[in-house]
Design a protein around this nucleic acid. Structure first.
Length: 208
DNA sequence: CGAATTTGACCTGCGC
DNA sequence: GCGCAGGTCAAATTCG
């Protein structure tokens, strides 16, 4: 079992332990339900951003589709190539008309059944400083929503954690961030903090 | 010039 | 079977 790491609780530097909205059951928010608050350190994906504030959730987000990961794992974690029927047909169409962004030889990995955790924050920044580095790999307009949804992937080599970021259409000051999966490495921010301490410990243990 | 982002095409699941 | 919507890929573009 590998160690698993979560977004670093930078906000924990404040003296009081902040609490955050958390899905009541199955990681799914329901706008009408009373949201649970949990301690920052119990939340596997705490919003660690001092400049973000907890807000009440408006009845605007489709939490079911956003957070749904309850389909059979075997169906969700399949890997596809272009040798199935659809792929062959698409390859014919592509043929001499290869275009930008084509998918002639890709392994297309579908949405996984890994646990998802979403939280909402009020911020002017789309990108939350959670101590990890993310690379944007897509943006998509979502139906019934004015604001596009952005897709990010953790830049660490062996880490496959993803997150989606979207603003509410009726209150664009609110950012909804959805994490999928857990990090298998510590955050860079955490390592920067710990490295000098570890070096000092090594130095001291070598002396004594 | 390498890294990161943008952007439009591609792929799949699902509802009708 | 078809069309739509969501998610992903990767070439092109931008940025530091």
């Amino acid at each position: 079992m590998e160690n698993q790491y979560y977004p670093s609780p930078a906000a924990a530097t404040s003296s009081s332990s902040p609490t955050y909205q958390f899905p009541p059951q199955n990681n799914i928010f329901t706008p009408s339900s009373s949201s649970h608050s949990i301690n920052l350190f119990d939340n596997p994906h705490p919003p660690p951003y001092p400049h973000h504030h907890q807000v009440q959730i408006p009845p605007d987000i489709d939490w079911i589709s956003l957070l749904s990961g309850d389909q059979p794992a075997g169906d969700l974690l399949t890997t596809h190539n272009n040798h199935d029927q659809a792929g062959d047909r698409a390859e014919e169409i592509r043929g001499s008309n290869r275009r930008k962004g084509g998918a002639s030889s890709r392994n297309y990995t579908r949405r996984s059944s890994r646990p998802r955790v979403a939280f909402h924050t009020r911020s002017t920044d789309d990108i939350l400083d959670d101590g990890f580095r993310w690379r944007k790999y897509g943006q998509k307009a979502v139906k019934n929503t004015l604001c596009p949804r952005s897709y990010y992937r953790c830049t660490h080599n062996t880490c496959s954690v993803k997150k989606q970021v979207q603003r509410l259409s009726n209150d664009t000051s609110i950012v909804v961030t959805t994490y999928e999966g857990v990090h298998n490495h510590p955050s860079e921010e955490l390592m920067e903090t710990l490295t000098p301490l570890l070096k000092q410990m090594q130095f001291l243990s070598a002396r004594f």
